[in-house]
Computed example of a mutant assay.
Amino acid sequence: SLGQGQVYIHWSTDRWKHAQKTACHFKSMFWDKTTQSNARNPNQYDIAIWKGWIRAGQCFRLEYAVSFETEHQIIWDNNHGRNYVLSHDPLKILILNLHCYQEDNQDYKLSQIARAIDDMKADIVCLQEVAEPWNDGMGDWENNSAKIINERLPEPFHIYTDWSHLGFDKYREGVAILSRYPFIKQDARYVSDSHDAYSIHSRKVVMGQFNVPLIGLVNVYSAHLSWLEDGFEAQFNRLNDWAQHNHNARIKATLLCGDFNIVAGSSGYDLVVNSNAYEDQYLEATAHGVFEKVFRVNDPYWHDYMADDYRIDYIFMNKASELKVTSGRTVFTDKDYGFVSDHCGYYMTFEPK
């Protein structure tokens, strides 16, 4: 009824910053699954079969719509305004403070964490309050909590961990990164004034660099910083300087992950916002309107919008990064895997912008 026309595929691999148009070809014959034989096109139901090939190369995400164009009109199929999407899996990151072996049913909870990592198909896991027995300062690697979680995965990840101080008078306490991808570079350093192993104010951060398929190089830092009154500002400034030094044109994203011991909306959080270098990715994923007030227009009343947000665990992403957060959720609550720590975990996904 539309008369003679041509079918086209309109497509983009960079979220429509650039678009291409590919013509489809009318197939005079096609394979009819009903009769298991060749059939003429159009068939008895007036369905016309067209075929087109898109040469998209090694892209992460492909969006497309279809048009039927005649001399007088264009008929669109763009999935009800959403366009059709083919995409690789996003980069999936989980952060969690383990509570330094202070949990009841600790062994079961370590297994629950491993189960969640596997179920959610996490790619990178940043852990804080990672513990192993003190053992006169020598540690006990076989009983390291991050190592145990990793060994309970169906396929263990690459792991890097380091400790900073004596925790709860009986553990070497530190931070860790578990990664599905090999470490290209790894490093650990104190960001605190104190380097004293017997001081709880001694804080060390670990970092890893990874080559994420179809995304590129990503720098990830697992941090557990002190409370504001105990040195947060100096520690964050050192971490920021370190991360900025490692960020260059080759790096697609820099992510500061973990327990920052600053409540969302507090003066410590204000310090991060005013650094004008990092943005709160959970807020961006789950409360876009609030995110705009905090990071885009710097609404003088933005603190009021975060009055009920008591998070102290974050993924802060460098504004120069080429990724965008696509989802965020709280995990390890009574709604999913149960409480495994005195902290909830946060799970976020990222794609190229």
Score class of each variant (00 low, 15 high):
Gln4His: 00
Gln6Met: 11
Ile9Leu: 09
Trp11Lys: 02
Lys17Tyr: 00
Ala19Pro: 07
Ala19Lys: 15
His25Leu: 11
Lys27Cys: 01
Lys27Tyr: 00
Thr35Leu: 15
Asn38Gly: 01
Arg40Ala: 10
Tyr45Asn: 15
Arg55Asp: 04
Gly57His: 08
Leu62Phe: 07
Glu63Thr: 09
Glu69Lys: 06
Thr70Gly: 07
Ile75Met: 00
Asn78Phe: 07
His80Cys: 03
Gly81Trp: 13
Asn83Asp: 08
Tyr84Lys: 03
Val85Phe: 04
Leu86Gly: 12
Ser87Asp: 06
Asp89His: 10
Asp89Asn: 05
Asp89Cys: 12
Leu91Trp: 06
Lys92Trp: 15
Ile93Ser: 06
Ile93Lys: 10
Cys100Lys: 14
Gln106Lys: 11
Asp107Val: 03
Ala114Pro: 13
Ala116Val: 14
Met120Gly: 07
Cys126Ala: 14
Glu129Lys: 14
Glu132Gly: 05
Asn144Thr: 03
Phe157Val: 10
Phe168Gln: 09
Phe168Met: 11
Ala176Trp: 12
Tyr181Asn: 01
Lys185Ala: 08
Ala188Pro: 13
Arg189Lys: 14
Tyr190Ile: 12
Ala197Arg: 08
Tyr198Trp: 10
Tyr198Glu: 14
His201Asp: 15
Arg203Asn: 12
Lys204Val: 05
Val206Leu: 01
Leu217Ile: 13
Asn219Ile: 02
Asn219Thr: 00
Asn219Met: 05
Trp227Leu: 08
Trp227Ile: 01
Arg238Phe: 01
Asn240Glu: 03
Asn240Thr: 06
Trp242Cys: 02
His245Asp: 14
Asn246Glu: 15
Asn248Met: 04
Ile251Pro: 06
Ser267Pro: 11
Gly268Glu: 06
Gly268Arg: 08
Val272Thr: 04
Asn276Ala: 02
Glu284Trp: 07
Ala285Gln: 04
Pro300His: 02
Trp302Arg: 13
Trp302Asp: 06
Asp309Leu: 04
Tyr310Ala: 02
Asp313Lys: 00
Tyr314Phe: 15
Ile315Val: 04
Phe316Ile: 01
Lys319Tyr: 04
Ala320Lys: 10
Leu323Asn: 11
Ser327Ile: 05
Phe332Gly: 01
Phe339His: 15
Ser341Gln: 06
Asp342Gln: 13
Asp342Leu: 00
Tyr346Leu: 02
